[in-house]
Structure formats: C-alpha cells, structure tokens
Computed example of a mutant assay.
Amino acid sequence: MRIVVCVKEVLDPAAVNNYALAGNLKIAADGRTPDVAAIPRLINGYDEQAMEAAMRIRDQGVNCTITAVSIGSDQKTLLKHCAALGADEIVAIDPGSAAIDGQVVANILGAYVKSIGGADLILCGRQASDDDQGVVPLLLAEKLGLAAVTLARAVEVEGHSVKVVRATADGDEVVQGSLPAVVTVSNELGTPRFPTAKAKMAARKMAPVELTAASLGLTAQGLQPVVVLLKQFVPQVQGNCEFFSGAPADVARQLIERIRAA
C-alpha cells in the first residue's frame, strides 16, 4: 500500500514565543510576514507525528511505501529529515511565486496524489503551528472524494480498512472505515522517534523528486487563493505579578477580593 504524509516547514514555535515575550518579534515591511532571520525553521510538530503514525503502521507489519510531500521552493532539509525518519520517497512541489492559502495547498496536494495514481492512506498533522487553521486535510479529502478522520491518537491498518482512535473532549472514540482515506494526527499519538545517525547519513544522499504546480496540470484558477492575508501584527504582551502575605486564610480572602474586583 502507498501512504502519503503531507509535511510543512514552520518557524520554531518555542523560539517565536520567546521572541514575542521578550518584545523582539517584529513584522517585516510588508506588514504580513514576521521578520525572523534568527528563528530556525523545522518540521511542523503535528506533521512529525503523522510521520510517526506512518512508521508505526509499517512496524505493525504492513507492507507499505511511505512518501513525504511538502510544498515550497526549498524543502530539502525538511524532506531529508523525513527520509531519516523512514520515508521511502520525498517530494518537493514548488508552487511558484503566487501567494497560497489552504485552498491552493489542498489543490496542489490533490493534484499530486492524482498524478501518482492515488494513495491508500493520506496522513496529515491536525494543523500547522504557524496558522493553526487545520483546514488543508479536510479540503484535500473533499477534493479527492475521500472520507476524513480527524484527531487520531492511534492509526491501524487492517486489510482494506483503517481503524482510528480519536482523541476527543469527551474521551477516546474508535472509528473504522474503508481505505483510501485521509487521517489527521494529533499530539496524543505520543513522542515521535528520533532518526539514528546511520539514517541521517543515508538521508543526505536521497534527492527529493522536484515538481512544480504547473507540471501537475494546475491552472491559474487552481492557484488562486480564496483567503488573502492582509495584515499580521504582534500583540502587546504584559505580565504582572503580585504577592499576598499573611496567614493562609488571609491570603485566600485577599485573593477572592481581588478576583471579585477584577
């Protein structure tokens, strides 16, 4: 079976938060993108867990080919990390110079999946840490006419079906459906594995398949975003700390008074 894992490169969320709290996160002159020359880029955490879900399916004894695909002009570092994790194929798709939104990303990924004759299972992170929208997997499922299962904490392939344990606010939910399907993976899956030194060395020699949106047959209309980012800004972050003193009962009374006053 063929498993396609959709991955995205994002700014390191921890570094972004630290810069924001220190008041050093700035927006570039275009008013839409962060000025982040010193912030490292890495694989989206949820997408890394989607890679882990694919590897666990292989560990279950399923004979599968795992393809990691990403959209962007320079994705070699990200994709070679996926190769070190265990991807058999890595694919980089250049969308061109046009601004893209979730709709365009789904169009490109859908066109790629169709170009390879389809996939038995498409795994995605539940959302990206930079925009937190989580719309691409569902748009992709709609464009391919596939069922979608979200918030997976465990994924198992049983013959021609997939069983997913979903992490919901009301507790775990187990669903099962026929393949092919799209599944989004959540952080409840657990800590992803680390690539070995040997795997990293082997991944350095793997070259990604490089494609363009045009080579996938997408028209200008298919690359036209529906949602356009107009402005992005960094909110003012203020932290205040006040200490109460006295006996525990007095501290509790002061705290209740302050909460009521607020």
Score class of each variant (00 low, 15 high):
T184F: 06
K200N: 04
K200M: 09
M206Y: 00
P225H: 09
K231S: 14
G239Y: 08
V162D: 02
P225Y: 07
D172H: 13
L211P: 00
T191L: 13
A202N: 11
S178K: 13
L189H: 05
Q236P: 04
Q224A: 15
F194W: 10
A207H: 11
L223P: 00
V175R: 08
V209D: 09
A207M: 06
Q236L: 12
G246A: 07
L189D: 12
L223N: 10
A202T: 10
A169W: 07
V209K: 09
T168W: 10
V174Y: 01
V162L: 06
A199V: 02
V174D: 05
N240V: 08
L216R: 00
T212S: 15
G171V: 03
A197R: 11
Q232F: 05
L211H: 04
R166F: 02
T212F: 00
F233Q: 15
A203D: 03
F243R: 07
A197V: 14
A181Q: 01
A181L: 04
G190K: 05
V234M: 11
G239E: 15
A214P: 06
A181T: 03
Q232V: 13
V164L: 08
Q176E: 11
P180W: 02
F233C: 08
A213R: 01
P248E: 02
E210W: 03
V165W: 09
A220H: 05
F243L: 15
V183R: 07
L179R: 00
C241E: 13
P208L: 00
T212Q: 11
L223S: 05
A207N: 12
P180F: 06
G222H: 08
E188K: 12
F244V: 13
E210R: 01
G190I: 00
A167D: 15
F243S: 09
K200I: 11
A220C: 10
A213M: 02
V185F: 03
V228D: 08
D170T: 10
F244D: 06
P225T: 09
N187Q: 14
E242F: 01
S186R: 10
E210M: 12
E188M: 04
V228C: 01
K205M: 08
